[in-house]
Structures are given as C-alpha cells and as structure tokens.
Nucleic acid binder design. Structure first.
Length: 268
DNA sequence: TACCAGGTAAAAA
DNA sequence: TTTTTACATGGT
C-alpha cells in the first residue's frame, strides 16, 4: 500500500460519490470504502488517507490512472475564487469543497459507456453495461476489466443486441471498435477538432462528444448543454435560465461548473 | 398500461 | 431548415 499525496482541496467521499449515487458498474466497483478499477490486467484499489489516498499497487502504470479517476488535474482553487460571488456556484463550491469530477481513464470505455447512456436512464444504462462487461470483459476478482476495443471489434451486432443494446447502438459500438480512429491521438487536438472527429462517427452526437471532452479529456471549457440533467439543473437553480445561454456565464470554468451544478441539483 | 429516462440518425414536413 | 419518429431497457 502506497500513499498518493493530493495538493489542493480534495474530498475523497464527495469525489467518489458518483459511484454510489448512480451505482458503479462491474468495471468500477465500490466496496469496503474503496474504489476498484482494472489497469492493464491488474486490480487497483483506492481508499481515503490523510492528505490524499492510499493506492495498491501504486506504480508508473497505475499512477496516471488514479490521478485521472480522482480528477487531480482540475485547478479547484482558481475555480472557487472565480465562483465565489455566483448566487448558486458560490454556496455550492463551499458546500462541496474538495469535490473533483472523476475522469474516465480509458477513451474506448468512456465512449461505450456514453453510448449505453444515450436516451435511457442511467440505471438502465448500468444494467446493460454490466451485461456487456460480463459477456466480453475479464473477471479479475474484485472488479472486472472493461472489454477491450479489440474484443468488441470481434463481436457481432447480434451479440451486443443480446445484452440489451438496441440494434442501432450495437451497430454504432461495433463500428466504433472497428474504426481506424486512434482515440489516444484525440487527446492532442483542440476541443473543436476532437468533437469534429467524434461526431463524424455514426452514433456519436454532440452530447456524447461534449461528455467525452468533459469526463475523459478534462477540458475546462466542455459544456454538455444537450444533457437532460444539466438542462434541468441550470433551469431549476437559475430560475428558468436556458442551458445554452448559460454557457458564457460559466466561462472559463464550464466543465467544473457543470459538475458542481449537477451535484448541487441532485443533492437535497 | 403508459410514460419517462444524463440521445441519435433518418425520415417527414 | 426544422420537426417528428423509432429505438431497448428499467423503474414508476
């Protein structure tokens, strides 16, 4: 067990709360006050510790994954200073101090998870995704490894339909796995270019591309305005404000603002 | 039973 | 160009 120090505001329980609020899938298990995730065929456990987290095992392969999951790339101090005077974000950033948006460490897993979440409830998406993981992933004991892109590329659309995908989503997902798009190269491109390349794929619209920027690439200006939950959060918290018109209000912290608004809206 | 839920593409208007 | 429709599942 090794310690990973975290500088800046950090609240482990708040940050990992999404895995309890929405339910964790088989590839992101929450158990015994710790989070389990597969990294390169090994299981990593993350738990709270003084001044940061304890991680087992912690090495050059797991370190960047853990940092992503915990959202350590976000500059919360700058965000809090900017948000302090806002009627909604001011109180929210004080109430949820230390909350960091969790970043999905793997681009293929992020996109497939997003496709499963399109249009249906998160609960339905979770059930379908779990059957996908158990059908094509690898059971590592404490957690499952999410199916590799190569494995899904070999799967048939009928097999995905069999675990609950619609025919269209099955087609999208297999085609994505088989496409020649290098997802790791996307990280080098500016926001607009990433969106353009993703939206060019069938089954990936603006909503999915925006969440990819926000929850995988941790881009500060990502603003998933098409998101139903975000639309309701903005409208309810700002008395009818339209989510698209709200964008400039949250510049230059659109991504962190979206996450804090969603958290504030779903937390009584 | 019918409808909605952290969308998307294609058809129709 | 804008609006409508089909889509699979799980919860209410």
């Amino acid at each position: 067990m090794a310690s990973l120090a975290v500088s800046g505001p950090f609240d482990f329980a708040l940050t990992t709360g999404r895995f309890r609020a929405f339910g964790a899938d088989r590839a992101n298990a929450w158990r015994d006050n710790g989070l389990y995730h597969a990294v390169g065929g090994r299981v990593v456990r993350i738990e709270a510790a003084d001044g940061g987290v304890d991680v087992e095992p912690l090495d050059s392969e797991t370190d960047p994954v853990v940092r992503a999951i915990l959202g350590l790339a976000f500059d919360l101090e700058a965000f809090y200073e900017w948000a302090a005077a806002d009627e909604v974000l001011g109180p929210a950033t004080r109430r949820f101090r230390g909350f960091r948006p969790t970043i999905a460490p793997d681009p293929f897993e992020m996109l497939v998870a997003a496709i499963t979440s399109q249009q249906v409830s998160l609960q339905s998406a979770l059930a379908i995704r779990n059957r996908l993981i158990e059908r094509f992933g690898v059971d590592l004991g404490d957690v499952w490894a999410f199916p590799l892109r190569e494995r899904i590329a070999q799967a048939s659309e009928d097999e995905l339909f069999g675990v609950g995908f619609s025919h269209r989503k099955a087609e999208y997902t297999v085609a994505l796995a088989r496409s020649d798009l290098d997802l790791h190269d996307l990280a080098l491109l500016p926001d607009d270019e990433v969106k353009a390349r993703l939206v060019a794929l069938r089954g990936i619209g603006e909503w999915t591309a925006d969440w990819y920027l926000a929850r995988h690439l941790a881009r500060p200006h990502a603003w998933p305005w098409g998101d139903l939950a975000l639309r309701k959060a903005v409208s309810d918290l700002y008395r009818g404000l339209d989510v698209r018109e709200a964008r400039e209000r949250f510049h230059p912290f659109e991504n962190l603002s979206a996450h804090y608004l969603l958290l504030a809206h779903r937390t009584p």
